[in-house]
Lab assay of single mutants.
Amino acid sequence: SSGGSSILDRAVIEHNLLSASKLYNNITFEELGALLEIPAAKAEKIASQMITEGRMNGFIDQIDGIVHFETR
């Protein structure tokens, strides 16, 4: 797709992000992006959206560029 990722790509990214949230206590956007094979800024945006929508527990430290995952 030309304008970003398809629905399937997005679903795969979100699935992998949720998997990462179970493996890590926290991770930088750079590391997360590398893990998900997407730019760091996109990793931040998707993580932020999932947390806001209540689909993933955690919070974002924008100063240090880190996602902190919280286990249920």
Rank of each mutant, 00 (worst) to 15 (best):
S1E: 13
S2Y: 05
S2I: 12
S2T: 12
S2V: 12
S2C: 07
S2A: 11
S2R: 03
G3S: 13
G3E: 12
G3A: 11
G3T: 12
G4W: 05
G4V: 11
G4M: 10
G4D: 12
G4Y: 04
S5N: 10
S5G: 12
S5Y: 04
S5A: 12
S5F: 08
S5R: 02
S6M: 09
L8Y: 14
D9H: 06
D9Q: 06
D9G: 05
D9T: 06
R10D: 15
R10N: 14
A11F: 10
A11Y: 10
A11I: 09
V12Q: 13
V12Y: 08
V12D: 09
V12E: 12
V12T: 14
V12G: 08
I13L: 12
I13T: 05
I13R: 03
I13V: 08
E14K: 03
E14Q: 04
E14H: 04
E14Y: 06
E14A: 04
E14C: 04
H15E: 15
H15R: 14
H15G: 09
H15V: 10
H15D: 10
N16D: 06
N16S: 09
N16V: 12
L17Y: 01
L17A: 02
L17F: 05
L17T: 02
L18C: 06
L18D: 03
L18V: 07
A20R: 03
A20S: 05
A20Q: 07
A20M: 11
A20K: 05
A20F: 14
A20V: 15
S21N: 03
S21I: 08
S21K: 02
S21Y: 04
K22R: 10
K22T: 08
K22I: 08
K22A: 07
L23T: 08
L23R: 11
L23Q: 09
L23V: 11
L23N: 10
L23D: 06
L23S: 08
Y24R: 06
Y24D: 01
Y24V: 06
Y24T: 04
Y24G: 04
Y24E: 02
N25A: 12
N25F: 09
N26W: 15
I27M: 13
I27L: 14
I27H: 01
I27P: 00
I27G: 00
T28Q: 02
T28G: 06
T28Y: 04
T28L: 03
T28W: 01
F29A: 02
F29L: 12
F29R: 02
F29D: 00
F29C: 02
E30S: 08
E30R: 08
E30G: 07
E31K: 09
E31G: 07
E31D: 12
E31M: 10
L32H: 00
L32I: 03
L32P: 00
L32N: 00
L32W: 02
G33W: 03
A34P: 02
L35Q: 03
L35C: 04
L35A: 04
L35W: 08
L35M: 08
L36D: 00
L36K: 00
E37Q: 14
E37H: 15
I38F: 01
I38R: 00
I38Q: 02
I38W: 03
P39M: 04
P39I: 04
P39E: 08
A40K: 08
A40S: 08
A40I: 07
A40T: 08
A41V: 10
A41H: 13
A41R: 09
A41C: 06
A41N: 10
K42R: 14
K42N: 13
K42V: 15
K42D: 15
K42H: 15
A43D: 00
A43N: 01
A43K: 00
A43L: 09
A43Y: 02
A43W: 06
E44W: 14
E44T: 08
E44S: 09
E44V: 15
E44I: 15
E44H: 13
E44L: 15
K45R: 10
K45N: 10
I46Q: 01
I46V: 08
I46R: 00
I46F: 08
A47T: 10
A47S: 05
S48A: 13
S48C: 07
S48G: 10
S48F: 11
S48E: 11
S48P: 00
S48I: 13
Q49W: 07
Q49D: 14
Q49N: 09
M50R: 00
M50P: 00
M50C: 03
M50E: 01
I51K: 01
I51N: 01
I51A: 02
T52H: 11
T52C: 07
T52Q: 14
T52P: 00
T52I: 11
T52K: 14
T52Y: 10
E53C: 06
E53L: 04
E53N: 06
G54V: 01
G54C: 05
R55M: 07
R55L: 09
R55T: 08
R55E: 03
M56Y: 03
N57G: 10
N57C: 10
N57D: 09
N57L: 09
N57Q: 12
G58W: 09
G58D: 01
G58H: 02
F59L: 07
F59C: 09
F59K: 08
I60V: 09
I60L: 05
I60A: 02
D61C: 07
D61Q: 05
D61T: 06
Q62T: 14
Q62P: 13
Q62Y: 15
Q62I: 14
Q62M: 15
I63P: 05
I63G: 08
I63W: 07
I63N: 09
I63C: 07
D64T: 15
D64S: 15
D64L: 15
G65K: 12
G65C: 04
G65P: 04
G65Y: 04
I66C: 06
I66S: 11
I66T: 09
V67R: 01
H68L: 04
H68Y: 15
F69C: 03
F69M: 02
F69S: 01
E70T: 09
E70N: 13
T71D: 12
T71N: 14
T71M: 11
T71V: 10
T71Q: 13
T71E: 11
T71K: 14
T71R: 10
R72G: 11
R72Q: 13
R72K: 14
R72F: 13
R72V: 13
R72S: 14
R72H: 12
R72P: 14
R72W: 13
R72T: 11
